[in-house]
């Protein structure tokens, strides 16, 4: 418990530095591109357009989902998924790519995954703003349910940081882990409900076990939660079981992550 506390404390102490360094990181990523930061929005926008066409138009034939058109249903969950995917893959590489840089100074290495988180977040805010406009055009109106966004956002950050701490440490020691994670995220994409509406599927309705198993997945919890918040279809405190499952997974990851992080941190340089 002390270890977890130590790691969390380092984050809060260095919040300003994390924020400023994240800006520079973001700047350096697209520095050589003509369109610069526009790509950060253009790239996911193209993705959304594809899924909208393939799933919304072709597969679901413009059938409304939870009372809204497919695009309005897709966006809140999908941008959360895009953010989580980019963050998880970025965070798992973050330590490896940055240790060389910080190896010759006493820098709280535990803040490196947070930096990736902060720089991806800049992107997420943009996407969120744009998708709110689109959702409004498709008939989504602000409601009290939107307050839940803050809760699910907190869930997302907590889960991503905890996972980032675990994956970044493992990647330093075993470099293959990043590639494995990449494949795992491909699979996650299909089972986390980012583009499928599992509850409106005839086959899954016959086998409720499948949906129960999917519900254990923390990604599903966040994505479905974001949808509930924006489309106003439910409250998070009505599903205590999912709540307990999500938070116990997150806390376990956090405790385990800070343990292995502190265990290996002084030897990161040896592994590079």
């Amino acid at each position: 418990m002390k270890e977890t506390w130590l790691v969390l404390l380092e984050q809060f102490k260095n919040l300003n530095v994390i924020h400023r360094l994240a800006k520079y990181e973001e700047k350096s990523t697209f520095q050589a591109h003509m369109l610069g930061n526009v790509w950060q929005i253009l790239d996911p926008a193209i993705n959304i357009a594809i899924y909208w066409f393939v799933f919304g138009m072709v597969l679901y034939g413009n059938k409304p989902m939870d009372g809204y058109s497919y695009i309005a249903w897709l966006l809140p969950g999908f941008i959360a998924w895009q953010f989580m995917r980019a963050e998880i893959l970025g965070a798992s590489r973050s330590m490896v790519s940055r240790v060389q840089m910080v190896s010759k100074m006493q820098f709280p290495v535990s803040t490196i995954p947070s930096m990736t988180l902060a720089s991806q977040l800049i992107n997420y805010w943009w996407m969120l703003g744009i998708s709110m406009v689109i959702m409004f055009m498709y008939g989504v109106r602000p409601s009290l349910y939107w307050l839940q966004f803050f809760y699910y956002f907190f869930c997302m950050i907590a889960f991503l940081y905890a996972l980032g701490l675990v994956t970044s440490t493992i990647t330093v020691v075993v470099r293959d882990f990043h590639t494995l994670l990449n494949s795992a995220m491909q699979l996650m994409f299909w089972v986390s409900g980012a583009i499928f509406n599992f509850s409106a599927n005839a086959i899954i309705e016959q086998h409720p076990m499948i949906i129960h198993i999917i519900q254990i997945n923390p990604f599903y919890y966040i994505i479905a939660g974001m949808r509930e918040a924006f489309l106003g279809t439910g409250w998070f405190f009505h599903d205590i079981k999912s709540f307990v499952i999500f938070w116990s997974i997150t806390l376990m990851l956090l405790i385990f992550g800070s343990h292995i992080h502190l265990k290996f941190r002084s030897r990161f340089v040896d592994y590079i």
């Binding site: 076990m209 129960h212 254990i216 079981k241 307990v244 806390l251 376990m252 405790i255």
Partner: peptide, 17 residues
């Protein structure tokens, strides 16, 4: 704490299933 969380997780998952 870890042990408690593990038990809680298993318990809740079983209840869900």
């Amino acid at each position: 704490v870890l042990g408690f969380l593990t038990l809680l997780l298993i318990f809740t998952i079983v209840a869900t299933l």
